[in-house]
């Protein structure tokens, strides 16, 4: 499909733009996911809001990723077929490696979304196992965005990548260091007359009777 005869086509610009936006949204969704599991909350942000925003941003990211993939495939300037969208390292564009990473990230992302939408059917254990792939999906997507693409070496792209990395890094560090979300004011609790008992952190798993 030759819409523009020569030069930088609209689809190619759209690919780059949607790619950058995808990265931003994916970063935001990932950061919120980390905050979610860390049980972060604040007065303005109850838990259900963090959780819902995480899910919705992920879906929005999906929309932009799909747009990114479709515009890449449809663009006539380079020959990246539909197969390359799902089968990693099957296309040799620019050496094939960075593009392949993008495909890997896309595959992982599809798995994350699909299992989340079908969570009630497949059960918690399967869903949780697959959801760990998020920790692989995002870095791979980030590498793809800095390695491939026309804008790879552009300062704004690098700044974007750095910013996203910083955000995720901060989220993960916060999750590891804060106990029980470290959030601000929750529902007012009755003050005990003496210090509350040491609470044993009990990890309960649905259904599992072995630890």
């Amino acid at each position: 499909m030759t819409v523009f005869a020569a030069g930088v086509s609209a689809t190619w610009m759209l690919t780059r733009a949607s790619g950058a936006v995808s990265l931003l949204l994916l970063t935001a969704a990932f950061a919120l996911g980390v905050a979610d599991v860390a049980r972060w909350r604040s007065r303005m942000w109850p838990r259900f809001a963090v959780d819902a925003l995480h899910r919705n941003l992920a879906l929005l990211a999906l929309a932009f990723v799909v747009l990114h993939v479709l515009t890449t495939v449809l663009d006539s300037f380079v020959h990246i077929g539909l197969l390359a969208a799902v089968l990693p390292f099957s296309n040799g564009y620019r050496g094939g490696f960075w593009l392949g990473l993008g495909t890997v990230a896309f595959d992982l992302f599809l798995a994350l979304i699909a299992t989340s939408l079908l969570r009630r059917r497949i059960g918690l254990r399967v869903w949780r196992t697959v959801h760990w792939a998020a920790y692989a999906c995002w870095p791979v997507a980030l590498l793809h965005s800095v390695g491939t693409g026309t804008d790879a070496a552009q300062p704004w792209m690098l700044a974007l990548a750095l910013g996203c990395t910083a955000a995720i890094g901060a989220a993960i560090i916060a999750r590891l260091t804060l106990r029980d979300g470290g959030g601000g004011v929750g529902a007012p609790r009755r003050e005990p007359a003496e210090p509350p008992p040491t609470v044993r952190r009990v990890r309960t798993r649905q259904g599992a009777l072995t630890r």
């Binding site: 819902a52 009630r120 059917r121 059960g123 918690l124 254990r125 649905q206 259904g207 599992a208």
Partner: peptide
């Protein structure tokens, strides 16, 4: 019930669940 991160909140009619999470795992 859909928002519960561990699918612990259940909606039931009488004693039968309306949507049973079929993936719940019995003891090994």
């Amino acid at each position: 019930a859909a928002a519960c991160p561990t699918l612990a909140l259940l909606l039931e009619r009488g004693t039968r669940p309306v949507e049973r999470a079929t993936g719940s795992v019995p003891p090994p």
